[in-house]
Design a protein around this nucleic acid. Structure first.
Lengths: 265, 265
DNA sequence: CCTGTCCGTTTACGGCGTAAACGAGCGGGC
DNA sequence: GCCCGCTCGTTTACGCCGTAAACGGACAGG
């Protein structure tokens, strides 16, 4: 029942698989540790939303009282930080031979494309967690969501500098790229969340209410079917390629007119 | 002490002025109504952050008990929705003769530029409120933050359609534009918040800690001074103009090869 | 003067994050 | 065998949260 409305499958939208030997979350193999807690928190947010996550309820989902968690996690805020770290970390270890392996790439464009799709896969796999990735205060002021780890930023800058970008151009590319990713992915998961939250509270005939609302807005009323369509994958691709073209132009300008300062220096 | 590091002033960064006859927030002119409450909430968030906003504390800032607020606001969530609405609404009534007046414009590019700078001015004036604008579930699934009002989306689509954009192109432009705005502005206010939160907890010699952290990351260490620089205004402008160029290309392609479907249809 | 209607206060309840005391189970030294 | 200390989940408790419900004073109209 996934993406049957699109004629082409979305490669970033992968089925979420349970661990092969993982029992139901009601059984508890009695071993409690930080990783199990963080994974339970991720599962809980995916299933019930961030607002529903409380220490008591998270403990209950692990068959344990709330205070037991505090032996492994300093507090709720640190728990959320750990959730963000753990989700972002799946960029590397998840499906390493298939689609996204950041370390091994063919050129900086390929790297940026793989990284973008990797982050998008994460966002779509955990739409309720992604706003946390976007909004949690970063470790350093120049760590820009959703690229939330020093390793990641380091590899980004290294890849571009190795490809001939100046330090200034690489940093400017980092900023443009993170803005692009954050905007697109946050809006995509927001839309998913909005659709879900609309489904679980039908609340009378929304059809009539919508039509009366749009009476004063002719352009909205006319384009409403278009606005409802989900072209996220295609638009993501187009914006990404546009950004890559822009960066390529910057790189070639710098190579042709060497020693000249660009407009960002 | 504002932006003395930049040689050019940021036009979206305006001084926040108190109301001329507004007394201190400790005095209470005894009239309580919804608008006063919403404004007090905005001031409170600007000053103390969203997490610190509590019904009890908000009431106290108005010289009143928490329960008094419930006569004018249904609950905390609706209060936050009201805050978002009120802040976004300042797009129209604020400084109408000076910089941003959406209704009266010279061409669609001018409209998009004014709208972008208007939203940026809002984001910079209320950096702690903007994440709320970005993350609150929208009224309809196709209302994309930060353009959070039907009026706004209607005027956006109307302006572009009047300028010759097809319905599909106007909707695609709306999506690309909102993604651009959200990404850039959210990252800009996040950076402001991170800097502020770093200032109020100096926490020992952060200098030594930072240097040890960056030992394993040569590219980060080398570009660290560049990463610390704030080029937000220039980058915002450049990305905006790039987006406008892209839209202009789409528009002219559609005009030249009329009746042809574009790649988004 | 009485009475109803605003409107802010008081009281109360369940849930939250979390500090602190508690106790069951258990493995190693004597 | 015994006991000690350590690990780790539980229990209890505190203050703050959002908010339902009862309350009371001020004030206007008969």
């Amino acid at each position: 029942m996934d993406t049957t409305s699109d004629d082409t499958r979305d490669p970033d939208l992968v089925a979420v698989q349970e661990g092969p030997g993982a029992a139901s979350e009601l059984t508890r193999p009695a071993g409690l540790d930080r990783e199990r807690i963080l994974q339970a928190a991720i599962d809980f947010i995916d299933e019930s939303g961030l607002a529903a996550l409380t220490m008591r309820r998270l403990g209950a989902s692990l068959g344990v009282e709330a205070m037991a968690l505090y032996r492994y996690v300093p507090g709720r805020e640190d728990l959320l930080d750990g959730v963000v770290d753990r989700v972002v970390e799946t960029l590397w270890d998840d499906q390493d031979g298939d689609d996204v392996y950041i370390g091994d790439h063919a050129g900086w464009q390929d790297y940026l494309v793989r990284l973008a799709h990797g982050m998008r896969r994460i966002a779509l796999a955990h739409p309720a967690v992604f706003p946390l990735i976007a909004s949690r205060p970063p470790a350093a002021p120049w760590v820009r969501p959703p690229l939330r780890s020093l390793r990641l930023v380091e590899s980004f800058l290294g890849t571009l500098c190795d490809a001939g970008f100046s330090d200034q151009a690489a940093v400017a590319a980092y900023r443009a790229y993170s803005s692009f990713l954050l905007g697109h992915l946050l809006l995509e998961v927001t839309q998913i969340g909005a659709q879900v939250s609309l489904l679980d509270q039908p609340e009378g005939d929304a059809q009539a209410q919508e039509e009366t609302d749009l009476a004063d807005y002719p352009n909205l009323a006319r384009t409403e079917p278009l606005l409802g369509q989900d072209k996220s994958a295609a638009e993501f691709e187009e914006s990404l390629e546009n950004l890559l073209d822009r960066l390529e132009r910057v790189l070639h300008q710098a190579k042709n007119s060497d020693g000249e300062v660009d407009d960002l220096a």
